[in-house]
Design a protein around this nucleic acid. Sequence first.
DNA 1: GACAGATGAAGGA
DNA 2: TCCTTCATCTGTC
Length: 171
Amino acid sequence: MKTSPPAGWWFEIETSAGNFSARITARGLAELRFPGERAPKATGTDAPPAALIILRTTVAALRAAIAGTPHSKLPPLDWGGATTFQQSVWRELQRIGPGCTRSYGGIAARLRKPGAARAVGAACGANPVPVLVPCHRVLAADGGLGGFSGGLEWKRRLLAAEGVAAAATAK
DNA sequence: GACAGATGAAGGA
DNA sequence: TCCTTCATCTGTC
């Protein structure tokens, strides 16, 4: 693995839930970090217009997601480096509508890999763009929260915004 | 090749 | 009914 810094520009996005950090490349949104997470200093001042357009779409989609209102347009996503399995999981996540949930096993079954629920969980954990790729809509088979890269509190919060009453009994 | 993980199901108390 | 254990599948080192 190379140690060179990732390509793209970092932006800070203000929302009602705090300041998110986003890394945007020429190809799309590559990474999104929750408020409080460590992120490089914003470097977007010298970003090209194309990146700013992606940023604008990202901001709108992010704020809509936090408010629990369906967003019709997502920014292009830069999944460079992700495995095909991860990408198929993330694509499946994007098909889950607002207010709907699936189980890890359910996602695995839809990918024609019943039994790969644990691998789906791992792919969710590797999701670089939480919130917009709704890994928070994936619950454990028993209705429990399972896990979340940004913390269970965020998962519960995002689900609540969409009107989903999660079992909320984190193991 | 070995190990770890955001699961799920089965069996026992 | 709850708890523990094991099987399953994939990604990472």
